[in-house]
Nucleic acid binder design. Structure first.
Length: 155
DNA sequence: GCCAACGTTGGC
DNA sequence: GCCAACGTTGGC
């Protein structure tokens, strides 16, 4: 089992939007980045825990807990010529882009802010979220990093 | 295959 | 709104 962090801009799709979805579950999102794609396609498993992170907002923060709710499956929008996510190089036989469904398990009453996470950079060690210049929207979180970040909320 | 130009991300 | 970082594109 691996742990993950996924970023979403709340203006586009927030944790509240996910909460409003049937079964608090929805596909997570039309990733067009190969590194993120590889994590989703090759490593995510049903039940993996996920931090839901709000980016590009007043207070960037982990705002919810979620879990992977499906096996990876091809992104149908990549095959739809009318979609903004259309990719002519993706085919039914050789899909290029993948989705997984994500189910919200808890909203955090007290979000864990990026600022707070950065204050604990030393304890966290190498963590993609706080790496300079990082733009990855899907990233793995080590078990001890997961536990440590959750303990910040409890504290 | 190189690399400049361009677009996007995302914190501040 | 600014700008650093990074990925992608396309000319050569």
């Amino acid at each position: 089992m691996k742990h993950w962090l996924v970023k979403s801009e709340p203006d586009v799709f927030s944790v509240d939007d996910l909460a409003d979805c049937p079964d608090q579950t929805r596909y997570w999102k039309h990733v067009r980045n190969y590194q993120a794609r590889n994590f989703m396609r090759d490593e995510m498993q049903v039940g993996d825990p996920v931090f839901f992170y709000h980016s590009n907002t007043d207070v960037p923060a982990i705002v919810g807990l979620a879990e992977i709710a499906s096996e990876p499956y091809p992104d149908p929008e990549a095959l739809n010529p009318d979609s903004k996510y259309f990719d002519p190089k993706s085919t039914v036989d050789e899909p290029r882009w993948f989705l997984v469904d994500v189910r919200l398990t808890a909203r955090l009453d007290d979000p864990i802010s990026l600022h707070e996470i950065k204050e604990h950079a030393t304890e966290l060690g190498d963590f993609p979220l706080i790496r300079r210049g990082n733009r990855l929207s899907v990233m793995p979180v080590a078990q001890d990093q997961w536990d440590y970040i959750l303990s910040l909320k409890a504290a």
